[in-house]
């Protein structure tokens, strides 16, 4: 990204307008591809539910909405920390960026811990992909997202380590912006998944 070409708003260190989003354009193309896959999943869930409304509503009630709330708050908070990390590196505050990235990583790990507990509970009760159509969608959709969170946490860990080694500064930090964009995509997808699978009936 040609960060240097952007005009910056005084104080906020954010560009006024630019033709391309923050970070590497290849990452954004990857993000669009990922969003397309999740869109297919979401729409397939909704239209399959049309044929099994009673079953979907019955088994949706077995899900732990409190855990889903905590997970949503963990992802949103992680996204906020990532935003602060990007703002910090744009302002040249390398140490601040590193700390925000570690904090975001912690929130990502919290999500993985809560979701793992949920999976352990369901598996302990004998729930499998083959149990019924609802659980097939629930397990496959949430686990597909779970894998993305794992990748996102790895990305944040690598970025935090590289920031700590002084690899980025106020002028050169496109990798941080790319990683941040990926993480926000993971958050964005969960914000649709949460109401769709856990709440709407």
């Amino acid at each position: 990204m040609l960060v240097g070409e952007r005009s910056m708003t005084r104080g906020s260190n954010l560009p006024d307008t630019t033709r391309y989003p923050p970070g590497d354009l290849a990452v954004w193309i990857f993000i669009l591809a990922e969003l397309a896959v999740f869109a297919i999943f979401f729409v397939a869930y909704a239209f399959t539910r049309m044929q099994h409304v009673v079953l979907f509503d019955q088994y949706q009630a077995t899900l732990d909405r409190n855990a889903a709330l905590l997970n949503t708050l963990a992802l949103i908070t992680a996204s906020y920390f990532v935003v602060r990390a990007v703002a910090a590196i744009r302002e040249g505050r390398v140490e601040g960026c590193r700390r925000w990235l570690w904090a975001a990583t912690g929130m990502g790990l919290l999500f993985l811990l809560i979701k793992s507990t949920e999976y352990a509970h369901h598996l302990g009760e004998g729930v499998r992909l083959s149990s019924n159509t609802f659980y097939m969608f629930y397990l496959s959709l949430t686990f597909f997202h779970f894998m993305h969170v794992i990748l996102g946490v790895i990305v944040l860990l690598v970025l935090a380590a590289r920031v700590g080694r002084g690899c980025y500064d106020a002028r050169d930090h496109a990798d941080v912006e790319s990683g941040a964009s990926y993480w926000h995509m993971v958050d964005l997808v969960w914000l649709i998944l949460f109401p769709l699978v856990y709440v709407m009936h």
Binding site: L14, P15, D16, T17, T18, R19, Y20, P21, P22, S79, Y80, V82, V83, S181, H184, M185, D187, L188
Partner: peptide
């Protein structure tokens, strides 16, 4: 707000 797309055009 988070991805910064309000600063992007096109």
């Amino acid at each position: 707000g988070f991805m910064g797309l309000r600063h992007v055009r096109g």
